[in-house]
Amino acid sequence: MCTAAVAAGIVLAPVPATAEPEPGGVGRASGAGADRSVAKLLTDLQRLYQEAEKATETYNATEERLRKQRAEVKRLNAALARTRLSLHDSRGAAGRLARQQYQNSSNLSPYLRLLLARDPQHALDQGHVIGQLARERAETVGRLTGDEKRAGELARRAREALDEQLALAERQEVERDDVDERLRAVEELLVSLTPEELAALAEFERDGIAEDQERFMASGALGDDGMPSAEGDRAVRFAVEQLGKPYEWGTEGPASYDCSGLTSVAWERAGTPIPRTSQEQWARLKRVPLGELRPGDLVVYFPEATHVALYLGDGMVVQAPRPGAEVKASPIAANPVLGAVRPDPGGEPLRRYTPPRIPEGATDGSDEGYAAADYAPVAPETSIR
């Protein structure tokens, strides 16, 4: 659930980062909500969404490992099948050699057969053939022994790989339940709010983001946008085509996305596969200064790199914010920026670049994704396979 918390710098009511929601949530008719400021509500939602997003990226990482593990199990099983077939053939050849040895057995040594032969040259030729057969027998036995060892080793590795796959599947189920639980906490807080409180919350958020964006742009942190590479251009255009599609945790399109699902698929479609999760994208891709950003670069947010967006240019990003929101264009400072990475550091910048047209309404809606509280946070049907 790609967190889109208000960037650092908003003056909020002081509250510990790990504070729990007050028992009973915010009152409706009772007036209990009067004891909680809009800033406090925003802080609580930020914390709950960030916890949910962190759990989601953990789930996504396990999903990626499980996907690779399934491929490894399939590869090992195929290799084991080939080795067992080779072992079957080797055993057949060994059996034929054993029968030949029994049928052609003789108590005479090759030296005595040479002395008693009427034609010594024929005996020498025959000895050469016998030697060749002996070498072939040795090779057959060696092949049989090697195939048996390989089959045993592959069988062991296949069992271990399957055990790892089952362990990852169990872990994924636990992580799925963790995400569901954290999203239910968000939903409980949202449904406790009156329409007036939701409206005040949305207005407070918009004002805060606008102020943070203004300060961010005035700080000089961003330089003039560079030209994207050809692949960066394709990634941007693909991301723009996804505007308006709903956020759904653990998904990679085509109907819905979570934050890293959008960025990873955009770059895969552009021709450069990148890691699936925001943490891995931050850890493994080339980092670039914010002053050198170019369209297509990825902007990573929060100290634990739990959210990611794709840079559009002019201080704007395209992102999948979180449940209840849609893929949208947002100010780069809508979230606290950790840094930026470039999936194609060797990509040559285009000489000419025409940015894609951003549809009207693409910037509408909450950048934090909680303007509406009528969604049900359930796991995607395709998330557990």
Rank of each mutant, 00 (worst) to 15 (best):
K328S: 05
E148L: 11
G223C: 10
Q213C: 02
A376W: 02
I10K: 13
D89F: 02
K286H: 15
C259M: 06
V288Y: 05
A266W: 04
V179H: 08
D224T: 10
D224S: 11
D180L: 11
R284C: 03
T382M: 05
L243P: 10
G313C: 14
P275T: 06
R234N: 01
D147V: 03
D344C: 05
L285F: 11
D297F: 01
R215A: 14
E196Q: 12
R70E: 12
R135N: 05
V179A: 06
A379C: 03
L262F: 07
S86K: 13
A372H: 05
Q46W: 10
V288R: 09
V236T: 08
A4D: 14
L285N: 11
R234P: 02
A376R: 14
N107P: 12
L144H: 15
A93S: 12
D119P: 02
Y353L: 06
G142M: 01
Y311N: 02
D233E: 15
L183G: 15
L144D: 15
G250M: 10
Q100R: 13
S278T: 09
E20L: 14
P195M: 05
T363G: 12
E326Y: 03
A151E: 13
A93W: 02
G244H: 13
G291T: 14
D367C: 07
D207T: 11
R91I: 10
Y311G: 03
V308A: 09
